[in-house]
Design a binder for these strands. Structure first.
Lengths: 339, 339
DNA sequence: ATGAAAGCGCTAACAT
DNA sequence: ATGTTAGCGCTTTCAT
């Protein structure tokens, strides 16, 4: 375990002061060409690699952005990581990951870990539970934080998809095709995405002149298995719906399974549209008509906002609430081709 | 920007030495019940949060594991993160990500960044290019590193899926059904997964008593679009294959698209099996018969191996090469139901 | 059982 | 333009 090369080693080798080495490494003050050359040579001779930990301790910034969300299930996880990496190529940021597993206590642990690691900023997707404690702590501290996907607290910058109009549009689309028994598969309680999409469903019905019927709404809890069960129940009723609007992609999978098991054909027997695009929604038979959210755009918007806060360019700015528009992808499962 | 609470603050508040605070926080030496109580009280009164950066500088370990792979495309990214997080709950590790974008120069940057951040270990999926320089540097240094997915260098611990027998099995399965013109869609050049699966293809043919024909092999470069084009070309030939073995899931998507465009039905007109399961391979019509690799198991095996190296429990151990068995998922696209 | 003090490798005043 | 030096907040020997 040979001792790593330090800045002092480089300074000695080049015959200059440690601070001179620091300044050529960081470009923080003018250094004569002669010395700079000696230093650079010493650096490459010794194979010196700056110790970021020491630098962080001295400067009290880590250039680390913490990500708190469920790694396994949150669709923003990968794009957020990619956005930070991309920003990192410009500003030197990297990401530290802390899995919240979508549970309040794990979320709290995650945040504490990141705070302890002195990250410069945090990107967080709030869990559904009562996470007031975590958010309070974050709001009271001075680590810039941006909330992604779910709108939960106006003390923070928040970026998410537009839900209400998007869902209303799906409903109206089905209504235009003559459907009057349109079911809605709702997500997990306590998430803004869930409530906003539910609102959109009612709004769409209203605009289409259709009455809201409670028994056409069922909860899939944002999970494929639950959705499958709910929809099976729905189909078994005396008066089943003629169309379904699924609240997110996990649940859409569940719907598909339920439909296949019951032998119903989409869109012939029942129409299906959903919020969220599947990775390969086009190879399904029929191809799915969906409202797609631009995950990458949401992620990079959030990260850019965060970095502006971190670098102080947006110090005094009020917390932002940004909704990103979705895209309607018109394929076959709505049944339009049949008309 | 109030100054964060330090250990010195806690010590002052509790009226003890800083070292005492340190020892109660870390449990590194006995402290009398009386003092411990005072310290604990001071900690909660002040809201003290240990500064991991300072601790890292003092102990020269960061409890950080670096991940180098393409965040966007590598299927091990998420399970590796999850595995590290899970290990973290036991040993305090977190992950820092460095996106290689599957390109040699970005990979080198990524590794340097992680080294500079003094991560305790690295999980890396080697790119296809000539990355000898990076691996040499890693092998020469003393940061434990484990390679995942692709076997590229025996100086490191390596964990990946079993490719050869798995692919041979797929071929044999098709041969059993009477196919004698079985095409193979191969992945990107320069990856061990690609060459091993190609070997498996030939092995399968051989075992089935079928001759190898060069023009039944085409490259999809591990990408859906390329695969789609290749397969379209394949189908346009005077003597098209009666079955296709796809080398990975991206390419399987491409195959599906090509088949749909050409109006061919699976498995009636052509059989299709693939290496890798799709997330929702069961809702496709027909459901896909595939060889699935246990990504989570591979990821956690790699991480556990790495942590054992880091903690020194495997100091003297020779580099390990671990192949994890795949699982055959028998669904409909192979055409068995037809027989 | 507790405290004092010397680093860990860097940055950033403060000299000159 | 360059060097000297005092921290950054912790851990860990060495005393007591």
């Amino acid at each position: 375990m040979r001792r790593p090369v330090t800045m002092a080693d480089v300074a000695a080798q080049a015959g200059v002061a440690e601070s001179t080495v620091s300044h050529v490494v960081n470009g923080t003050r003018p250094v004569s060409a002669a010395l700079r050359a000696r230093v650079l040579e010493a650096i490459s001779e010794t194979g010196y690699s700056p110790n970021t930990v020491a630098r962080s301790l001295a400067t009290s910034n880590t250039h680390l952005i913490g990500i708190v969300m469920s790694a396994l299930t949150n669709r923003f996880f990968v794009p957020v990581v990619a956005a930070i990496d991309s920003a990192g190529r410009r500003h030197g940021y990297s990401s530290v990951l802390a899995d919240s597993r979508d549970r309040v206590d794990d979320e709290a642990d995650a945040v504490n870990m990141l705070l302890s690691r002195r990250v410069d900023g945090i990107v967080l997707t709030p869990t559904a539970g009562d996470r007031a404690a975590v958010l309070d702590k974050l709001a009271a501290g001075d680590v810039p934080t941006v909330l992604v996907d779910r709108f939960a607290d106006d003390r923070f910058d928040q970026v998410g998809p537009e839900n209400t109009e998007a869902t209303a549009y799906l409903v109206q689309h089905l209504a235009t095709l003559g459907h009057d028994r349109i079911a809605f598969l709702s997500g997990r309680k306590g998430l803004s995405t869930t409530s906003e999409r539910a609102t959109g469903y009612r709004l769409g019905l209203e605009r289409a002149g259709l009455a809201f019927e409670q028994d056409l709404v069922c909860s899939g809890k944002s999970a494929a298995a639950t959705a499958e069960r709910s929809v099976s129940g729905l189909l078994a009723r005396r008066n089943p719906p003629t169309a379904i609007v699924s609240g997110d992609k996990e649940m859409t999978i569940g719907v598909l399974r339920a439909l296949q098991r019951s032998g119903m054909r989409v869109p012939d027997d029942i129409a299906l549209v959903g919020y969220d695009d599947l990775d390969f929604g086009d190879v399904l038979q029929p191809a799915l008509t969906v409202m797609a959210q631009p995950v990458s755009e949401i992620a990079s918007t959030a990260v850019n906002l965060l970095i502006r806060r971190i670098t102080g360019k947006a110090k005094a700015m009020d917390p932002q609430r940004v909704q990103i528009a979705t895209t309607f992808i018109h394929r076959e499962s709505c049944g339009c081709a049949l008309r």
